[in-house]
Write a protein that binds this DNA or RNA. Structure first.
Lengths: 194, 194
DNA sequence: TTCACCATGTAACACGTTACATGATTGG
DNA sequence: CCAATCATGTAACGTGTTACATGGTGAA
């Protein structure tokens, strides 16, 4: 439903090919919304059928030909409407937290290792967001054009979330360390229940 | 894939019916993983076919009979393995942030209204997490049993994330206010591009 | 020559949501 | 009598992933 609108949002800025859209959705917007080419190409066809996009083939020497998609007026209308529509927050469906839910039932030391590995993922993501923030706003806090403005907002959302999750990881590791030492003396069966 | 394990995690604590599991996954752990009965019942059947669960029918007077599911040893093995397995962070696929990406292209005042509505959702969720933290750890910081330990960890993850998102909302609303006033003087065509 | 990049797809499957369907008991 | 709660499902659909498939160009 909203891959549809993610594509419209990109094409609202400029004309792009399916290939280039695929690359975009692995870049900065892809930090919180990724999609694969196999999903994108058919979706573009559907959007054109619905009149939200038009396309034209551009012949290229020394490269395969490509089909450039452009947004139409109905497409812009659809996008505008969608952008301002309400959306419930979607921090639901988290694999990792479902695992953490059982951390009281496994060996605390093993849990702590898993957690610390997970933390490295978030450190990496934070670094990516920081990089994106630097690259995306060269003129500093102000002087953002229309596209950069929204992009920077989303990047900062990422920064906020990643930092808070790293803080949580530190707290959780501490909890596990405490649990570890609290269980050590009496833990003849290694404290495993799960 | 991990609804499977979400169910195993619940049943690792106690024997439950499909109905009760449905209720659980709309409660405290369900704050970050929800599933509907229509998905749960068939999944339980599949898990039993695979030998990860067993079930027995309990006849009830004055209530419909119910089928209680219990985890088996292979089920526990599967769960243990899953709990400690690596999972990449999953803050991907966020509808709302995809919308925010286009906030530079719509009327800033309208965007700010949408954002402020979104903020109320997060305020509500934060309140739910705070309530869950209070109810779930009556004995204070320590004295958590095996189940409460993991549950509290996940609840605190929720607390961290919700607070950071509220901070971000405040920042974003401020950005939009600034953009609003910056555009107002020269904005004869109301500043809409999208 | 081999690898990476450009460029576009199809097919099968897994996962999740919506809508529909049934039927008993308890409390207001 | 009506609504809510207990209890369990089926069917259709939409979305997303994995695997498979093709073929040209440019650089090392």
């Amino acid at each position: 439903m909203s891959l549809r609108c993610a594509l419209l949002a990109q094409l609202n800025v400029e004309e792009l090919s399916g290939y280039e859209l695929t690359r975009r959705l692995a870049g900065s917007p892809g930090l919180f919304w990724q999609a694969r080419s196999q999903q994108i190409y058919p979706e573009l066809v559907r959007l054109e059928e619905q009149g939200l996009l038009t396309s034209r083939v551009v012949e290229q020497a020394s490269r395969p030909d490509k089909r450039l998609y452009a947004i139409t007026e109905p497409g812009r209308d659809r996008l505008r409407e969608w952008v301002l529509s309400e959306s419930p927050p979607s921090f639901a469906k988290d694999d990792f937290l479902m695992k953490v839910w059982s951390y009281g039932m496994v060996d605390p030391a093993a849990a702590r290792r898993a957690l610390s590995l997970h933390r490295t993922h978030h450190e990496l993501r934070l670094a990516r967001f920081e990089e994106a923030a630097r690259v995306g706003s060269p003129g500093g806090a102000e002087a953002l054009d229309a596209r950069q403005f929204g992009e920077q907002l989303t990047i900062h959302a990422g920064l906020h979330v990643e930092r808070s999750l790293l803080a949580w990881c530190a707290m959780a590791e501490e909890w596990l360390r405490e649990r570890e030492t609290a269980m050590r003396p009496s833990a003849t069966e290694k404290g495993q229940t799960a």
